[in-house]
């Protein structure tokens, strides 16, 4: 995993609430056996029309959205399935952070393990961002805050361990493998065996 401390980018806004993982990457794209190349499937059913052409009214297709790495989405982003294909598709497309007032548990956990930063903010700040697509934002993992265009800084929750892993490019499997002695001891000493 790449190390991330902070980055700045413009935002692309999809204001819909409860965007589920079936929208982020529809099931028909899941018969893949690798994480690569899913960017083209991102929001496929919203992004393209029936003939497969980009829909002009979808935010990702607007000229100003090109190259924007921060997605601002409606409340409860990423609900539904556990498919890690959802953060893989966002990252493959070029999105590096998702900002919302609520992000679903499994999606959030999957994102953190892949270097996609889940940013949960208050309703007022969110409303402002929903209304200003293209706003230039800085996401600072070190300080656990975002900086808005006017310079205002807004904190977001990030537990110390996830922050450490993001900043140092540490993948969590490495950490778990270091616990193997404790795991063996647990397996030997537990009062019942599964």
């Amino acid at each position: 995993m790449e190390k991330i401390t902070r980055f700045s980018s413009c935002t692309v806004v999809i204001p819909t609430t409860d965007i589920d993982t079936d929208q982020i990457v529809p099931a028909r794209f899941l018969t893949t056996t690798t994480r690569k190349g899913l960017g083209k499937a991102l929001f496929a059913d919203w992004r393209y029309d029936n003939a497969g052409n980009p829909r002009a009214d979808f935010p990702l297709n607007s000229p100003g959205a090109a190259g924007c790495q921060i997605l601002v989405a409606g409340h409860n982003f990423g609900c539904g399935s556990s498919r890690e294909h959802a953060p893989w598709a966002l990252l493959d497309y070029g999105i590096r952070a998702v900002i919302s007032t609520g992000i679903a548990d499994i999606f959030r956990s999957n994102s953190l393990k892949n270097g996609l930063v889940p940013v949960i903010i208050d309703t007022d700040t969110h409303r402002g961002l929903l209304g200003t697509p293209g706003a230039e934002i800085e996401v600072d993992i070190d300080a656990c805050q975002i900086t808005l265009p006017g310079g205002r800084q807004v904190a977001f929750p990030l537990d110390g361990f996830s922050r450490y892993c993001l900043m140092n490019g540490v993948d969590q499997l490495g950490y778990l493998l270091q616990q193997s002695e404790a795991i063996s001891r647990f397996e030997e000493n537990r009062p019942w065996k599964p």
Binding site: I106, S109, N110, Q172, L173, Y175
Partner: peptide
């Protein structure tokens, strides 16, 4: 509970997960 593919790898390799 449901987990993502990275965590499937964690369980395969260590039979454990990191959880809050």
């Amino acid at each position: 509970f449901g987990i993502g593919t990275t965590e499937v790898g964690h369980v395969l390799a260590t039979q454990c997960l990191l959880q809050r």
